[in-house]
């Protein structure tokens, strides 16, 4: 364990990067998920086909492949565009932070698409009809009836998607993001203690997963209050 001395700082800042990537990709995941599910529910054939293609491709290929394609592909494209204007430029890339966040946001967003779609369709139509029968406007029905019912339905899967996101951040070290895996690699290089270093990374991720799990459990408890049996 003494080999860890001197690396705490680096692991801390690596963890901060993990949190940043997580938050950015979380926003993207929700965005892609909502867009995807809206497209699937829109009834528009073209949108539906695009959304279907999106979920099929991103759920059917390895995350690391999406990540590498996104990072190197965008770099090639950007460099080509830049060289068109200034031939002296050798190489431009999207920073690994953004390439990584967008890639895992896209991947997990494809799963979230199905979750959101399922939650939308899962709301008991009787509740919507009851609200309509009471003369409540469509908009208010959406806000006060559909949304509260929807997030309760989506929560368990949504929690799993958040766990996927946090764990997928580890992949981004492959394209050089300086998060905890990257720190462990460097620390191994100087200390020759890979076992301790990677166990530390594991412990950090376990802590993050636990925080997410506990948060989701808290929300579930709150959301299911109305189901508690009266005593």
């Amino acid at each position: 364990m003494e080999s860890l001395v001197g690396w705490w700082d680096d692991f801390f800042w690596g963890s901060v990067v993990v949190v940043q990537v997580f938050l950015v990709s979380l926003v993207l995941m929700v965005l892609f998920g909502l867009l995807g599910s809206a497209a699937k529910l829109s009834g528009n054939k073209v949108l539906h086909t695009i959304a279907n293609g999106y979920t099929v491709v991103f759920r059917g290929t390895p995350e690391i492949l999406v990540l590498l394609l996104f990072y190197f592909g965008s770099a090639i494209t950007l460099t080509a565009i830049a060289q068109f204007f200034d031939p002296t430029i050798k190489f431009i890339d999207i920073p690994p932070f953004w390439a990584g966040s967008i890639a895992i946001g896209l991947v997990v967003g494809s799963y979230a698409t199905e979750t959101f779609r399922g939650a939308f369709l899962g709301v008991d139509p009787g509740q919507i009809e009851a609200a309509r029968a009471l003369g409540i406007s469509n908009f208010k029905t959406f806000i006060y009836i559909r949304i509260p019912a929807m997030w309760r339905l989506a929560l368990p899967s949504f929690g799993n998607h958040m766990l996927s996101l946090i764990k997928d951040t580890a992949l981004i070290s492959v394209i050089g993001l300086q998060e905890t895996m990257f720190v462990a690699e460097q620390a191994t290089g100087t200390t020759g203690e890979p076992f301790v270093m990677y166990l530390t990374v594991g412990a950090i991720y376990l802590a993050f997963s636990s925080i997410i799990t506990l948060t989701v459990i808290g929300f579930e408890k709150y959301g299911n209050k109305h189901l508690e049996v009266g005593k």
Binding site: A170, M181, P194, L199, G202, Y205, S209
Partner: peptide
């Protein structure tokens, strides 16, 4: 189950590949 579902598989691969031979 908690440990293996709570950590990234890439970390698990690295612990096994780089870490275990050290033990």
């Amino acid at each position: 189950i908690y440990i293996f579902r709570g950590t990234p598989i890439l970390v698990q691969i690295f612990i096994i590949y780089y870490g275990l031979p050290q033990v």
